[in-house]
């Protein structure tokens, strides 16, 4: 039995509330995805904003009903057995507002422990060990509103472990965190899988995070999975291609030539980074093309292929484009 089994799952949102007798248009957020996650696997969903990652997570955590298709979590159907599923899973949602700021860290966990039916005998011990695990035991009586962003995220993770879930979902767990907190979260999640055998599905739009952390990755774009494999295998797709990174200052031509994609744009310094598979012969043509369009080239560099290149190859765009 798989921990997560997804079969042609679709989600269309109505543009307005579908009151009876009202005709509404539908937006296609997830257009039929299928995948399986083994128990004890760390599975990543990589894709740009608006690709359908959060919608998929909400369906799998029973918060949203799919329009079509099916999915099973630990063998339970996400439509029929919502309560069985909810007992066995948990979620770290995106954003920092998912806890009660006017309660202390301890009080938050106590509340969630109760609505997850954690028994009275276990409650104290579990909360204490979780708070110690995420390094918040000393701060347990402080109100969450006085926590830093990183501390809030650590508490959110502790909350997500309060029912000792078999499957844990994390939606953009490091978004907006400082470097140190990000490292803590990544290492912590990896340990949950390696040491406690939990199954984890996380979404991210940071390539490095997906590459470093995940056993397997599904690349999702416009509501569809366009590739699914281990990071190494995915990179093999672009192994024989040379990845070139070109930095431009100031104006960027509206079209980008060949399969170059914009992968970074720094508003402050006005620097844009183009990246793509360009071999030696093509390189001088590319540079010439850019110069002719009055682009100011600061640097051209040969790079090791990464998942970014896989994404560019598959979609013709950069992840953050």
């Amino acid at each position: 039995m798989y921990a997560i089994e997804v079969n042609n799952l679709k989600k269309y949102y109505p543009k307005k509330i579908p009151f009876p007798f009202r005709k509404v248009e539908w937006i296609e957020a997830v257009k039929g995805i299928s995948f399986k996650v083994k128990k004890g696997e760390l599975f990543g969903f990589l894709g740009p904003n608006g690709a359908g990652k959060t919608t998929t997570i909400k369906m799998l955590t029973t918060l949203l009903e799919p329009t079509d298709g099916s999915a099973r979590i630990l063998g339970y159907d996400i439509r029929e057995n919502t309560r069985e599923i909810r007992r066995r899973i948990n979620l770290v949602a995106e954003g920092e507002r998912t806890l009660y700021w006017r309660l202390s860290g301890y009080e938050n966990l106590k509340y969630f422990a109760r609505i997850y039916y954690v028994s009275k005998e276990e409650e104290r011990e579990r909360i204490e060990s979780l708070l110690k695990l995420v390094g918040l035991w000393e701060k347990r009586n402080d109100l969450v509103m006085n926590y830093s962003r990183g501390m809030k995220q650590r508490l959110a993770i502790a909350k997500a472990l309060v029912n000792d879930p078999k499957v844990l979902f994390l939606d953009e767990p490091t978004l907006g965190l400082d470097v140190q907190s990000s490292i803590f979260v990544r290492e912590f999640v990896r340990k949950l899988v390696d040491e406690q055998g939990k199954t984890v599905l996380l979404t991210t739009h940071y390539m490095a995070e997906a590459e470093q952390l995940c056993d397997r990755i599904a690349i999702i774009d416009h509501g569809k999975i366009i590739a699914l494999d281990t990071p190494d295998n995915l990179k093999k797709l672009v192994m024989n291609e040379d990845a070139v990174e070109i930095r431009l200052k100031g104006n960027v031509p509206e079209e980008t030539p060949w399969r170059l994609a914009i992968v970074e744009r720094d508003m402050e310094s006005n620097v844009t980074v183009l990246r793509g598979p360009v071999d030696e012969e093509e390189l001088s043509k590319v540079v010439e093309w850019l110069v002719r369009r009055k682009a100011k080239i600061i640097s051209v560099e040969q790079k090791e292929p990464t998942l970014e290149d896989v994404f560019i190859r598959l979609t013709g765009r950069g992840l953050r484009d």
Partner: peptide, 15 residues
């Protein structure tokens, strides 16, 4: 709803 705690409640096995 605005703060996002609502979904965290719905997610629990409580009705």
């Amino acid at each position: 709803l605005q703060r996002g705690t609502f979904e965290m409640n719905i997610l629990s096995p409580a009705k």
